[in-house]
Amino acid sequence: PAPVEAAELRMLSGFSPNFVWYREIGPRFIEMVQEKSGGDTTISFTGPDAVPTFEQFQPVQAGVFDLLFTHPAYHSGTTSVGLAIDAIDVDPVKRRDVGIIDYIDQHYMQRGMKLISAPSTGTKGFRYYLREPIDGVPGLNGRIIRGTVSYHPMIKALGGSPLNMPVSEIYTALQRGTVDGAAWGLTGAKDLKWNEIIKYMADPVFGQVGVMIFMNLDSWNALDEKTQNILLEAGREIEVEAQSHFDKLQADEFEWLSANGMEVTSFDPSEGNEFERLWAEGVWEVAAEVSGDDARKLRELAKSHGMTR
Protein backbone atom coordinates (compact mmCIF):
# COMPACT_ATOMS: atom_id res chain seq x y z
CA PRO A 1 0.00 0.00 0.00
CA ALA A 2 1.03 3.59 -0.57
CA PRO A 3 2.64 5.37 2.40
CA VAL A 4 0.19 7.23 4.56
CA GLU A 5 0.56 10.95 5.18
CA ALA A 6 -2.07 11.40 7.82
CA ALA A 7 -2.40 8.86 10.55
CA GLU A 8 -4.35 8.20 13.69
CA LEU A 9 -2.02 6.26 15.88
CA ARG A 10 -2.96 4.32 18.96
CA MET A 11 -0.53 4.37 21.84
CA LEU A 12 -0.50 1.83 24.67
CA SER A 13 1.08 2.98 27.92
CA GLY A 14 2.46 0.98 30.81
CA PHE A 15 1.65 3.90 33.12
CA SER A 16 -1.66 5.50 33.91
CA PRO A 17 -2.18 8.92 32.28
CA ASN A 18 -1.68 10.89 35.51
CA PHE A 19 1.53 9.14 36.53
CA VAL A 20 4.53 11.47 36.36
CA TRP A 21 6.64 9.40 33.95
CA TYR A 22 3.83 9.46 31.44
CA ARG A 23 2.29 12.80 32.37
CA GLU A 24 5.51 14.77 31.85
CA ILE A 25 6.53 13.05 28.62
CA GLY A 26 3.58 11.41 26.82
CA PRO A 27 1.27 14.38 26.23
CA ARG A 28 4.23 16.59 25.28
CA PHE A 29 5.34 14.04 22.67
CA ILE A 30 1.81 13.73 21.30
CA GLU A 31 1.51 17.51 21.14
CA MET A 32 4.83 17.88 19.28
CA VAL A 33 3.85 15.28 16.72
CA GLN A 34 0.51 16.94 16.19
CA GLU A 35 2.07 20.38 15.81
CA LYS A 36 4.82 19.29 13.44
CA SER A 37 2.35 17.43 11.25
CA GLY A 38 -0.07 20.32 11.18
CA GLY A 39 -2.67 18.13 12.87
CA ASP A 40 -2.40 15.31 10.30
CA THR A 41 -0.96 12.80 12.73
CA THR A 42 -2.79 12.26 15.97
CA ILE A 43 -2.09 9.84 18.78
CA SER A 44 -4.68 8.39 21.16
CA PHE A 45 -3.93 6.91 24.55
CA THR A 46 -4.78 3.50 26.03
CA GLY A 47 -3.70 2.68 29.55
CA PRO A 48 -2.81 -0.39 31.60
CA ASP A 49 -6.50 -0.98 32.36
CA ALA A 50 -6.86 -2.35 28.83
CA VAL A 51 -3.61 -4.34 28.83
CA PRO A 52 -1.65 -5.08 32.02
CA THR A 53 1.73 -3.32 32.12
CA PHE A 54 3.86 -6.46 31.92
CA GLU A 55 1.88 -7.86 29.00
CA GLN A 56 2.06 -4.92 26.62
CA PHE A 57 4.96 -5.71 24.30
CA GLN A 58 3.27 -8.54 22.43
CA PRO A 59 0.02 -6.74 21.48
CA VAL A 60 2.03 -3.83 20.02
CA GLN A 61 4.31 -6.29 18.24
CA ALA A 62 1.19 -7.97 16.85
CA GLY A 63 -0.16 -4.63 15.64
CA VAL A 64 -3.15 -4.27 17.96
CA PHE A 65 -1.62 -0.91 18.92
CA ASP A 66 0.78 1.32 16.96
CA LEU A 67 2.87 2.81 19.74
CA LEU A 68 4.13 1.62 23.10
CA PHE A 69 5.13 3.87 25.98
CA THR A 70 6.94 1.71 28.50
CA HIS A 71 9.99 0.93 30.55
CA PRO A 72 12.08 -1.71 28.78
CA ALA A 73 12.30 -3.85 31.95
CA TYR A 74 8.58 -4.54 31.53
CA HIS A 75 9.36 -6.80 28.58
CA SER A 76 12.66 -8.18 29.82
CA GLY A 77 11.40 -11.73 29.23
CA THR A 78 11.34 -10.98 25.51
CA THR A 79 14.56 -8.98 25.20
CA SER A 80 16.84 -7.25 27.67
CA VAL A 81 18.77 -5.02 25.32
CA GLY A 82 16.46 -2.06 25.99
CA LEU A 83 16.78 -2.15 29.75
CA ALA A 84 20.57 -2.04 29.46
CA ILE A 85 20.29 1.66 28.64
CA ASP A 86 19.73 2.26 32.35
CA ALA A 87 23.39 1.37 32.84
CA ILE A 88 24.53 3.92 30.25
CA ASP A 89 25.17 7.57 31.19
CA VAL A 90 22.41 10.01 30.49
CA ASP A 91 23.54 12.31 27.71
CA PRO A 92 20.80 12.29 25.10
CA VAL A 93 22.86 13.85 22.34
CA LYS A 94 25.91 11.69 22.90
CA ARG A 95 23.78 8.53 23.13
CA ARG A 96 22.54 9.21 19.63
CA ASP A 97 25.87 10.47 18.21
CA VAL A 98 27.86 7.41 19.19
CA GLY A 99 25.19 5.04 17.93
CA ILE A 100 23.74 3.67 21.19
CA ILE A 101 20.16 4.45 20.19
CA ASP A 102 20.73 3.14 16.65
CA TYR A 103 22.09 -0.09 18.00
CA ILE A 104 19.08 -0.66 20.25
CA ASP A 105 16.77 0.38 17.42
CA GLN A 106 18.31 -2.22 15.07
CA HIS A 107 17.90 -4.88 17.73
CA TYR A 108 14.23 -4.11 18.24
CA MET A 109 13.53 -3.85 14.51
CA GLN A 110 14.49 -7.51 14.22
CA ARG A 111 11.61 -8.07 16.67
CA GLY A 112 9.09 -6.03 14.72
CA MET A 113 9.44 -2.83 16.75
CA LYS A 114 10.93 0.56 15.95
CA LEU A 115 12.54 2.63 18.73
CA ILE A 116 11.23 6.18 18.44
CA SER A 117 12.53 7.75 21.60
CA ALA A 118 14.37 6.92 24.85
CA PRO A 119 13.85 9.87 27.21
CA SER A 120 15.49 9.69 30.63
CA THR A 121 13.62 10.74 33.71
CA GLY A 122 16.55 12.74 35.01
CA THR A 123 20.34 12.55 35.16
CA LYS A 124 20.29 10.25 38.18
CA GLY A 125 17.94 7.36 38.41
CA PHE A 126 17.02 5.40 41.50
CA ARG A 127 16.89 4.90 45.19
CA TYR A 128 15.46 2.38 47.62
CA TYR A 129 12.23 3.22 49.44
CA LEU A 130 11.91 1.28 52.69
CA ARG A 131 9.51 0.44 55.48
CA GLU A 132 12.28 0.30 58.09
CA PRO A 133 15.55 2.28 58.29
CA ILE A 134 18.87 0.72 57.32
CA ASP A 135 20.75 -0.80 60.18
CA GLY A 136 24.06 -2.45 59.55
CA VAL A 137 25.66 -4.26 56.65
CA PRO A 138 24.38 -5.72 54.38
CA GLY A 139 21.78 -3.00 54.28
CA LEU A 140 18.90 -5.03 52.88
CA ASN A 141 19.55 -8.12 54.98
CA GLY A 142 16.50 -10.42 55.07
CA ARG A 143 14.23 -7.90 53.33
CA ILE A 144 12.02 -8.54 50.34
CA ILE A 145 12.44 -5.70 47.88
CA ARG A 146 10.28 -4.98 44.88
CA GLY A 147 12.32 -4.43 41.76
CA THR A 148 12.23 -5.23 38.06
CA VAL A 149 14.83 -7.75 36.91
CA SER A 150 17.38 -4.97 36.37
CA TYR A 151 17.76 -4.58 40.11
CA HIS A 152 17.85 -8.21 41.06
CA PRO A 153 21.64 -8.71 41.16
CA MET A 154 22.08 -5.50 43.16
CA ILE A 155 19.33 -6.35 45.65
CA LYS A 156 20.86 -9.77 46.16
CA ALA A 157 24.30 -8.26 46.61
CA LEU A 158 22.85 -6.04 49.36
CA GLY A 159 21.43 -9.07 51.16
CA GLY A 160 17.79 -8.70 50.08
CA SER A 161 15.39 -10.89 48.12
CA PRO A 162 14.07 -9.28 44.94
CA LEU A 163 10.45 -9.60 43.89
CA ASN A 164 9.02 -8.26 40.65
CA MET A 165 5.54 -6.74 40.50
CA PRO A 166 3.76 -4.14 38.37
CA VAL A 167 3.64 -0.53 39.57
CA SER A 168 -0.04 -0.76 40.42
CA GLU A 169 0.57 -3.44 43.05
CA ILE A 170 3.45 -1.88 44.93
CA TYR A 171 1.41 0.38 47.22
CA THR A 172 -0.64 -2.48 48.57
CA ALA A 173 2.39 -4.72 48.89
CA LEU A 174 4.28 -2.10 50.88
CA GLN A 175 1.25 -1.47 53.04
CA ARG A 176 0.74 -5.15 53.80
CA GLY A 177 4.39 -5.87 54.27
CA THR A 178 4.41 -8.32 51.39
CA VAL A 179 7.54 -6.41 50.48
CA ASP A 180 9.78 -4.47 52.84
CA GLY A 181 10.76 -1.90 50.29
CA ALA A 182 10.90 -1.01 46.64
CA ALA A 183 13.58 0.13 44.27
CA TRP A 184 12.16 3.02 42.34
CA GLY A 185 13.02 6.15 40.43
CA LEU A 186 13.50 9.57 41.96
CA THR A 187 10.09 10.66 40.75
CA GLY A 188 6.84 8.80 41.14
CA ALA A 189 6.78 7.94 44.83
CA LYS A 190 4.71 11.09 45.37
CA ASP A 191 2.15 10.13 42.71
CA LEU A 192 2.05 6.63 44.14
CA LYS A 193 1.43 8.11 47.61
CA TRP A 194 4.08 5.96 49.24
CA ASN A 195 4.56 8.63 51.91
CA GLU A 196 1.22 7.47 53.31
CA ILE A 197 2.53 4.01 54.10
CA ILE A 198 6.31 4.06 54.41
CA LYS A 199 8.76 6.46 55.98
CA TYR A 200 12.21 5.94 54.55
CA MET A 201 14.06 6.87 51.40
CA ALA A 202 17.55 5.46 51.28
CA ASP A 203 20.72 7.24 50.19
CA PRO A 204 22.72 7.09 48.03
CA VAL A 205 20.83 7.40 44.76
CA PHE A 206 22.26 5.51 41.83
CA GLY A 207 21.98 4.57 38.16
CA GLN A 208 19.81 6.22 35.59
CA VAL A 209 16.33 5.46 34.38
CA GLY A 210 14.36 6.20 31.30
CA VAL A 211 11.26 5.22 29.47
CA MET A 212 11.02 4.23 25.81
CA ILE A 213 8.55 4.87 23.03
CA PHE A 214 8.36 2.08 20.46
CA MET A 215 6.34 1.72 17.28
CA ASN A 216 5.05 -1.39 15.57
CA LEU A 217 7.34 -1.84 12.55
CA ASP A 218 4.52 -2.45 10.07
CA SER A 219 2.71 0.67 11.23
CA TRP A 220 6.01 2.51 10.92
CA ASN A 221 6.67 1.27 7.40
CA ALA A 222 3.18 2.28 6.38
CA LEU A 223 3.94 5.94 7.14
CA ASP A 224 5.42 8.27 4.56
CA GLU A 225 8.94 9.58 5.13
CA LYS A 226 7.74 12.99 6.24
CA THR A 227 5.60 11.56 9.03
CA GLN A 228 8.39 9.19 10.04
CA ASN A 229 10.76 12.12 10.36
CA ILE A 230 8.25 14.05 12.42
CA LEU A 231 8.00 11.18 14.91
CA LEU A 232 11.78 10.80 15.11
CA GLU A 233 12.31 14.54 15.54
CA ALA A 234 9.75 14.70 18.32
CA GLY A 235 11.44 11.67 19.88
CA ARG A 236 14.86 13.34 19.81
CA GLU A 237 13.60 16.63 21.18
CA ILE A 238 11.70 15.02 24.02
CA GLU A 239 14.89 13.19 25.05
CA VAL A 240 16.74 16.47 25.49
CA GLU A 241 13.82 18.22 27.19
CA ALA A 242 13.12 15.40 29.59
CA GLN A 243 16.55 15.31 31.22
CA SER A 244 16.57 18.83 32.60
CA HIS A 245 12.83 18.86 33.21
CA PHE A 246 13.03 15.74 35.36
CA ASP A 247 16.12 16.92 37.24
CA LYS A 248 13.94 19.74 38.50
CA LEU A 249 10.98 17.46 39.20
CA GLN A 250 13.27 15.16 41.21
CA ALA A 251 14.38 18.00 43.43
CA ASP A 252 10.79 19.15 43.93
CA GLU A 253 9.64 15.67 44.75
CA PHE A 254 12.42 15.12 47.28
CA GLU A 255 11.40 18.30 49.06
CA TRP A 256 7.74 17.36 48.97
CA LEU A 257 8.34 13.86 50.32
CA SER A 258 10.55 15.25 53.09
CA ALA A 259 7.80 17.69 54.04
CA ASN A 260 5.23 14.91 53.99
CA GLY A 261 6.57 12.38 56.41
CA MET A 262 9.50 10.72 54.70
CA GLU A 263 13.04 10.81 55.93
CA VAL A 264 16.41 9.76 54.59
CA THR A 265 18.15 6.65 55.85
CA SER A 266 21.64 5.85 54.60
CA PHE A 267 23.44 2.72 53.56
CA ASP A 268 26.81 2.22 55.20
CA PRO A 269 29.47 3.99 53.06
CA SER A 270 31.22 0.66 52.54
CA GLU A 271 28.16 -0.37 50.55
CA GLY A 272 27.02 3.02 49.31
CA ASN A 273 30.31 3.65 47.53
CA GLU A 274 29.78 0.47 45.58
CA PHE A 275 26.27 1.36 44.38
CA GLU A 276 27.14 2.56 40.87
CA ARG A 277 29.28 -0.48 40.22
CA LEU A 278 26.72 -2.90 41.66
CA TRP A 279 23.96 -1.33 39.64
CA ALA A 280 25.75 -1.22 36.29
CA GLU A 281 27.21 -4.70 36.63
CA GLY A 282 23.81 -6.03 37.69
CA VAL A 283 22.04 -4.52 34.73
CA TRP A 284 24.61 -5.86 32.27
CA GLU A 285 24.44 -9.25 33.89
CA VAL A 286 20.67 -9.40 33.47
CA ALA A 287 20.88 -8.06 29.93
CA ALA A 288 23.43 -10.67 28.94
CA GLU A 289 21.47 -13.46 30.58
CA VAL A 290 18.49 -12.94 28.29
CA SER A 291 20.01 -11.33 25.24
CA GLY A 292 23.59 -12.65 25.23
CA ASP A 293 25.85 -11.26 22.52
CA ASP A 294 23.49 -8.44 21.54
CA ALA A 295 23.79 -7.06 25.06
CA ARG A 296 27.54 -7.63 25.29
CA LYS A 297 28.11 -5.74 22.02
CA LEU A 298 26.07 -2.82 23.34
CA ARG A 299 28.19 -2.81 26.48
CA GLU A 300 31.39 -2.72 24.44
CA LEU A 301 30.02 0.14 22.37
CA ALA A 302 29.05 2.15 25.45
CA LYS A 303 32.34 1.34 27.20
CA SER A 304 34.39 2.47 24.21
CA HIS A 305 32.79 5.89 24.65
CA GLY A 306 33.21 5.90 28.41
CA MET A 307 29.46 5.79 29.09
CA THR A 308 29.27 2.69 31.30
CA ARG A 309 31.34 0.41 33.45
Binding site: V51, P52, E55, Q58, P59, A62, G63, V64
Partner: peptide, 10 residues
Protein backbone atom coordinates in the same frame (compact mmCIF):
# COMPACT_ATOMS: atom_id res chain seq x y z
CA UNK B 1 -6.90 -12.58 15.20
CA UNK B 2 -3.82 -10.47 16.05
CA UNK B 3 -5.53 -9.82 19.39
CA UNK B 4 -5.42 -13.50 20.33
CA UNK B 5 -2.11 -12.99 22.12
CA UNK B 6 -3.87 -10.52 24.38
CA UNK B 7 -6.56 -13.09 25.03
CA UNK B 8 -4.07 -15.83 25.91
CA UNK B 9 -2.18 -13.48 28.18
CA UNK B 10 -5.32 -12.56 30.08
Amino acid sequence: PRGFGLFSNS
